[in-house]
Design a protein around this nucleic acid. Sequence first.
DNA 1: TATGCCCTTTAACCTATGTTGTAGCCCCAC
DNA 2: GTGGGGCTACAACATAGGTTAAAGGGCATA
Lengths: 273, 273
Amino acid sequence: MTRASARNVPEVTPLWLKLSSYLILKDEEKDYLSDLEKNIVRQTARTDLLQQGEKYRDVRVMREGWAIRHKALPDGRRQVVNFVLPGDIIGMYSTLFESADHSVTTLTAVEVACFPPERIVELFQSFPRLAAALAWSGAREEAIVAERLLSLGRRTALERTAHLIVELLRRLSTVNLVENGHFTLPVTQEILADALGLSIVHINRTLRRLRDSGLIELNGQRITVNDVRQLASVGQFDELYLHLIRAPKRLERAFSGDRRARSGDDKVEGRKM
Amino acid sequence: MTRASARNVPEVTPLWLKLSSYLILKDEEKDYLSDLEKNIVRQTARTDLLQQGEKYRDVRVMREGWAIRHKALPDGRRQVVNFVLPGDIIGMYSTLFESADHSVTTLTAVEVACFPPERIVELFQSFPRLAAALAWSGAREEAIVAERLLSLGRRTALERTAHLIVELLRRLSTVNLVENGHFTLPVTQEILADALGLSIVHINRTLRRLRDSGLIELNGQRITVNDVRQLASVGQFDELYLHLIRAPKRLERAFSGDRRARSGDDKVEGRKM
DNA sequence: TATGCCCTTTAACCTATGTTGTAGCCCCAC
DNA sequence: GTGGGGCTACAACATAGGTTAAAGGGCATA
């Protein structure tokens, strides 16, 4: 609760880091972000941060720990939509949407910052660069969900599983949570099954195949990827969708007014299939 | 090309309508939107508006017609991520992302407006309310993709198909493209299959079951839904995720400075599972 | 009127994945 | 330590959905 520091030395948080890959943050922007995160709350594992169907509450920023975003059918079948990692925002659109169409549940103990949804509006009004960076990071999240859709629709169980492992590896390594090819996966096989649209038994079979082929090792929650390249090739993994190549400078330039002609006569393209 | 009208009488476009459900647009915002859409281009059916892997080009606004957003694996397997309908934006994040992780292909002849990506940055700087409305409509699109993920992961072929038909019915009726329960579906069974993660043969079987049970009728591209309630119940359709209940007034209020206390002492919640 | 292409339809067969059931392990509570 | 709950593991069997193949309809072009 007292961890947020005074304005003169803003703390570097995961959100801060994430937005930095889109923008070179100005001092007042850093101050604003650190102010947003000043109300810090801890929650234990297996707690709902948001429940499908309820009215939206505060906006939350994940600072530490893992959670899942998931949706359920009335009869209990469940789909994990995405993993929520440090720096991710929960319920950013609370101001506008009536009620939540998904739940968010912690997998580990977590530390989140809470603030009222009105502050997002404030942010759009007063910090357009931050607003753009947030909107962009939201778009990146959508890209991840779309890629998972491709997995569920068109990849086999083995491919899907390999793909997810590589995805998590890549996402976690951008926040320095991977060391020597191994990382902590605080996830039961049931959750993996729900993320990949498989049964728990089949996820078990599939992990076994991956272990037998020597591509990965599993010890409790520790997963070791022995051969990323080959695992990526099994999963037909193409990291384009993670949009890891970011261009803070390009956005900087755009924001500093170096704008091209606003003429309406852009070239016309579009080619036949 | 000459259809965009002069500033004094801005044309009501689908984008305009869509944003109006989030905001009560001011005159200068209407003018700006109409200026954005002044460069209008037509394309025939089966043309790519964007190709996976290529550098992003212009931002486009769909004004008329249908398209699909889809992703493909190297071996040709393909997944349709979403249907692009009038008012939707294509490539909104061109400024930041290096290259496209999906393709967009027209299904019918379309009319789109094109503008350079820099204008999105301009919009964030000068029209924060429009920026917020756009960001929110992007979030709604993500919600649709997440719901489709639930379908592919956890619904049976019959449920998925019923669900998609009801979804399209609801989305199209908000833009007055449904009449008496029937609408035009400019889509081959192959595309349906790619949207639902099924084989073309199985989509055919499934449509047959829906027709045999009397829930729908198909004549060419005309689909008639005879019993929406029952179809919705087959598909376990809950329209929460479409976020059709919008609250322009709530957003208006937030933007006009009627903001609550910014104190940091929001209630702490979170309940055990 | 004929030709061909694209799309739909159906049948027969196949396989990836789901289901059910049982067992063992580990860890925590008592 | 003992019991129980949650998780992993794996075998045996069931089935939804995939694959292959072939025929037929509609529509444009010649």
